[in-house]
């Protein structure tokens, strides 16, 4: 029996096949984010006889599973948010939003407020871990402090974040 491989997906095949053993081998770098599945046709052909060769084919779907190869990305950096000094305590005054191309926990994001400058502003702001929403916890006063600098980080939920 001899084996042949045909890619049914439009792009060039990322796989090769050993014609004699039928081993399916990775021939190009895979990337789930670009192409999560590959459809192939493997055909087995008997070669012992030249008079009436027979063949049959099987469809193979190769699912590419995710690894955490993308870090979260911020849409903007820095983010500038204007908060009126009469903003109500408890009001959502901004939203932090990052994206991650990976799947499942590898792309699931959590937001953290790392630091606030000046430091006495630490008690004034809270960032929701899940949504990235920025909430005012205490009143602000333009005449006392006109600008706060917040460092917000985002992490994916992979084991190797």
């Amino acid at each position: 029996v001899m084996y042949t491989l045909t890619s049914l997906s439009p792009a060039e095949s990322a796989f090769d096949m050993d014609r004699s053993s039928g081993a399916l081998v990775v021939a190009r770098q895979l990337d789930r984010e670009t192409r999560p599945e590959h459809r192939l046709e493997v055909r087995a052909l008997d070669t012992s006889t030249s008079s009436n060769p027979q063949s049959s084919a099987v469809l193979v779907r190769v699912d590419i599973t995710d690894v955490n190869d993308n870090a979260p990305r911020w849409e903007r950096d820095p983010v500038v948010i204007a908060v009126p000094e009469d903003a109500a305590v408890g009001a959502a005054v901004g939203n932090f939003s990052a994206t991650d191309a990976d799947a499942g926990p590898n792309g699931e994001l959590r937001y953290f407020l790392d630091s606030v400058e000046p430091e006495n502003g630490r008690s004034k702001f809270a960032v929701d871990r899940l949504t990235g929403s920025l909430t005012l916890l205490e009143g602000v006063d333009f005449e006392s402090v006109a600008r706060y600098t917040l460092v917000v980080s985002v992490k994916d939920q992979a084991v190797n974040e």
Partner: peptide, 16 residues
């Protein structure tokens, strides 16, 4: 159906 991680190196044998 065959599953393969996206970080395998070229030459990796996916299946037989």
């Amino acid at each position: 159906m065959v599953k393969v991680r996206e970080d395998v190196s070229i030459g990796f044998v996916v299946g037989n």
